[in-house]
Design a protein around this nucleic acid. Structure first.
Lengths: 235, 235
DNA sequence: CCCCCGCAACTGTGATCGCAGTTATCAGAC
DNA sequence: GTCTGATAACTGCGATCACAGTTGCGGGGG
């Protein structure tokens, strides 16, 4: 496992080039790479040489270094002197710890969202987008829709700090959990996500924070157990 | 409020110079500045010009930029183009959100530590160090001892991810909460910390996770209410 | 087939320079 | 005394270069 990032991985993440809204180059690079982590375009063990990424984005290594440094500070990337920057390979214990923390925080976020209430239409739309993507066997869209559904709900918790902490955990978890979602041969696995998503959305809409948290917990646990059942984590 | 960082603030943080263990310059700078945030040497609104810090540490701006970028990625510092890097001034709402998240996560950490059990002697030693520093009116040592006690306990929770999340919150909260601990005129405030620390340590030692979490919660709440009672947060 | 050595390419890191916007200060006018 | 404009200093950001350790590849020998 582990590979030099390919042009294909890069293109999946979005259009390269300068930011269009006056934001700094480094902020743009951060967004591009973060999205690659969250979307599964980057996988555990993948290497990201600074100069190669700079070439691909058409900038010098300076904004690359700045962005990579920020992602490393969030634990999403591993930086070792003289070696190419890489996406961390988590051990089973590390993954279990990450999952435990995700459960604790994301359950809380979902229950806050259910207590505060959410509008029905956007939530149903987000849930349906995931269902639709799975129905079309569109793995990339499924990853995007899964993230969108989760993050819409967490945003409704109304706590910017909590959102930031969850984002940090997702940056770490993204390359791993998206190995799961990105695979099209696990239809039973995906139907489990559909079921937990459905339960969670229904519970949120009726304001049942405990049931919402339980459904979300089942969603995370189900995915984690699948990951742990496979031989993709370090010992 | 807000000032250019002074040589005094800098010296408080520790001895400048090259790292002695082969670590990168930027890692050393990170440690120095992080400690300044955690210890209260840096206060909300303080500015940290890159070149000035580079001069003081005897390095170029490159490792400074790398370290500052990482701290900014953790929300501990604010970076705006063309303006000096600064320590964020939190609004009341932001501080309340941070406190809420601290309560949620640190209570969990303390209860995990109490469930897992902790050795008595080092815990009593850490608690006594804080008590002793207050008794000597040594504000700096009190800050250090408070942090040491808390982090010893959180480390005993046995979750590296949780520890990282708590560290991120402390980096944000440090400059504010240490305004409190750093003040020697609030003796009644400090006796409240002694009381909550005592309760927390006793509860941990008898394995009572709920009581430990409650004591820690009172500790955080007490400090937060004091901060909110003063006019030092943005509106 | 395996091991070792040499060399080139790769890699992050630190140093230096210059750019463009921001801030502070000073002088002059009212 | 107050306001305005000019200028210098300040500021982060990006570009480029060089250093020193790491990795990969090819060739030769056992």
């Amino acid at each position: 496992m582990g590979s030099q990032m390919t042009d294909a991985a890069f293109e999946t993440a979005g259009t390269p080039g300068a930011p269009t809204d006056g934001a700094s180059l480094s902020a743009h690079v951060y967004d591009v790479v973060a999205e690659m982590l969250l979307s599964g375009a980057l996988r555990p063990g993948d290497r990201i040489p600074l100069r190669r990424l700079a070439d691909q984005l058409g900038v010098s290594v300076m904004p690359i270094r700045a962005a990579i440094g920020r992602l490393a500070a969030r634990g999403a990337l591993r930086v070792e002197p003289k070696r190419a920057i890489s996406v961390p390979i988590l051990s089973r214990a590390e993954f279990a710890d990450l999952t435990r923390n995700r459960l604790h925080l994301e359950r809380w976020a979902v229950s806050l969202a259910a207590q505060g209430g959410m509008a029905s239409a956007p939530l149903r739309t987000a849930e349906q987008a995931f269902r639709s993507a799975l129905g079309r066997d569109d793995a990339q869209e499924a990853v995007r829709a899964n993230k969108a559904l989760h993050f819409d709900i967490y945003a409704a918790a109304g706590s910017p700090v909590l959102m930031e902490l969850i984002t940090i955990m997702w940056l770490k978890a993204g390359p791993i959990i998206n190995l799961d979602l990105g695979e099209q041969s696990r239809r039973s696995r995906h139907s489990a996500s559909l079921e937990t998503h459905g339960r969670m959305v229904a519970a949120i809409l009726r304001g049942d924070s405990d049931a919402a948290a339980d459904a979300l917990g089942d969603d995370i646990q189900s995915a984690a157990e699948f990951i742990l059942s496979r031989d993709i984590l370090a010992s």
